[in-house]
């Protein structure tokens, strides 16, 4: 059998469900190939690449596998933006159904750029870490909230908050000094910055979005593999996807327990007014996104809504 070592790059922490999933994937790959196919994991951004960089270095086969946030890739193909649309998949079941629908489209988009999509992952849904409960439109008034993309910026300015853009490395000191009042992030992000140490008292789950990451490999490197190894890789990719989903769900409970333990109240009941506004926001954002993508986008969005 061949002896193959592939490099993996990801900016996400090795000490997270992402690290666990990559380990499971590497083990499966090694098991299927009798130790012939090895993954060298470079997580935590240790190779110096960020976000969209992954797209090109994998296309050029400098690194064989990368895990990249879907929304980071919209500069290459707008279609990836669909998973970042506000309130497009409010529950976990919605996320699974959405991924079933979009995966063929994403795979095709990667194919155009000499890459193959072999799996996907997610982070626990984003919510608002703030200094009071947010469950009605009025709760948003004047809140300086750190958002992370154009969709979230316009969504939260629509309900009367003041979206602010800040580097992630500035979030910790900005929350504790009061430059911002709140931050929109996954419960993973809130736990990573230890939100309770920064004056955060409330976590409002509003079903805004679930961050999706995509696992993509270089087509050139893939074609160099024997058919047997290609199959093993695809199977290991499935193991990644399944482990990631399972571990991500398990992590949510852990995060929530530690929020409660540190005195952060968790709210998950936005009132009907707010829900209605969110639906409007979702439609507006989707129509803008469809304008950028074209008819495929309209079909895709329709399919996700009707699932």
């Amino acid at each position: 059998a061949q002896n193959v070592t592939w490099r993996v790059t990801s900016t996400y922490p090795s000490k997270s469900h992402v690290g666990a999933s990559f380990n499971a994937m590497a083990e499966e790959l090694s098991r299927l190939t009798d130790g012939g196919f090895v993954l060298q994991l470079n997580l935590d951004g240790s190779l110096g690449f960020k976000g969209a960089d992954n797209f090109e270095i994998v296309a050029d086969n400098v690194v064989e596998i990368a895990e990249t946030g879907a929304v980071d890739l919209t500069g290459y193909e707008q279609i990836f933006g669909v998973v970042g649309l506000p309130f497009v998949a409010p529950s976990n079941d919605d996320v699974l159904r959405m991924m079933d629908i979009v995966t063929p489209e994403f795979a095709a988009a990667f194919e155009k750029h000499d890459q193959i999509m072999i799996g996907w992952g997610s982070f626990p849904a984003v919510g608002i870490f703030g200094k009071h409960e947010i469950s009605s439109v009025d709760d948003f008034a004047g809140v300086k909230i750190r958002t992370y993309d154009s969709f979230s910026a316009s969504a939260f300015s629509d309900v009367g908050a003041s979206p602010v853009q800040l580097a992630w490395s500035d979030v910790v000191s900005s929350l504790s000094s009061g430059v911002i009042d709140a931050v929109l992030t996954s419960s993973f992000g809130g736990a990573a910055i230890k939100a309770w140490d920064l004056g955060i008292t409330d976590f409002s789950e509003i079903g805004y979005s679930t961050p999706i990451t995509l696992l993509h490999v270089s087509k050139e490197a893939f074609d160099d593999l024997s058919p047997e190894y290609q199959n093993a890789l695809l199977k290991a990719g499935d193991v990644y996807t399944q482990t990631n989903w399972k571990e991500s769900l398990a992590a949510i409970d852990g995060f929530k327990a530690s929020f409660r333990e540190h005195g952060i109240a968790i709210h998950d009941k936005p009132n009907d007014d707010l829900k209605a506004r969110f639906t409007e926001i979702s439609e507006t954002a989707a129509s803008e996104w469809i304008k950028a993508v074209g008819p495929t986008g309209a079909e895709l969005f329709q399919a996700i809504k009707e699932k």
Binding site: K144, S150, S162, P163, V164, Q165, L166, A167
Partner: peptide, 12 residues
């Protein structure tokens, strides 16, 4: 940010 409760959103 501090006077007009707003942001350029592209500063970084």
């Amino acid at each position: 940010r501090s006077v007009f409760d707003s942001s350029l959103l592209v500063t970084e």
